[in-house]
């Protein structure tokens, strides 16, 4: 697996799909490819948010540690992006992510990611658009529940 295949994966991530290929390559190059063993944690709830991850291969799941116990919130698979909210909002991790299988992921360092956003407005806009879409979806869901 080389830089080019990583760029292909990044392109599948909704947040990155409109970004110029050269920029995606820069994002991939400045990221670190890491492997996780089954059961290894990406990060734990309450940790400092220092990076986001794009899963290139393997499966993981997201867990919330609530007073009532541990709740599995979501499943993650190929081309999923995780941990980006924490680095954008500069808040501690809101959940724990655990590897289910052997995982290959791309670790996008927070500082680097913010540098890139600062440097390339196109990237910032793509991120904002994705966040806006999510908000809209949430609003729609709330509206649906209310009605």
């Amino acid at each position: 697996m080389t830089l080019d295949t990583e760029v292909q994966s990044l392109r599948q991530v909704p947040m990155f799909k409109d970004i110029d290929p050269a920029r995606l390559k820069l994002l991939a190059f400045t990221s670190e490819r890491v492997t996780f063993a089954p059961g290894q944690r990406f990060f734990s709830q309450g940790d400092l948010s220092d990076a986001a991850y794009v899963i290139l291969e393997g499966r993981a799941h997201v867990m919330l540690e609530a007073p009532t116990g541990v709740i599995k919130v979501a499943e993650l698979g190929r081309n999923d992006l995780v941990g980006e909210m924490g680095i954008l909002s500069e808040t501690p991790r809101s959940a724990t992510v655990l590897a289910d299988t052997d995982i290959i992921a791309l670790r996008i360092d927070k500082r680097v990611f913010l540098e890139l956003l600062g440097q390339f407005p196109q990237m910032s806009i793509a991120v904002m658009r994705e966040l806006a879409k999510r908000l809209e979806r949430t609003n729609a869901q709330l509206a649906g529940r209310a009605s």
Binding site: L3, A22, R23, K25, L26, F120
Partner: peptide, 9 residues
């Protein structure tokens, strides 16, 4: 590769 991806910085 470097000139391609670091261009514009």
């Amino acid at each position: 590769t470097m000139t391609e991806i670091f261009r514009g910085l």
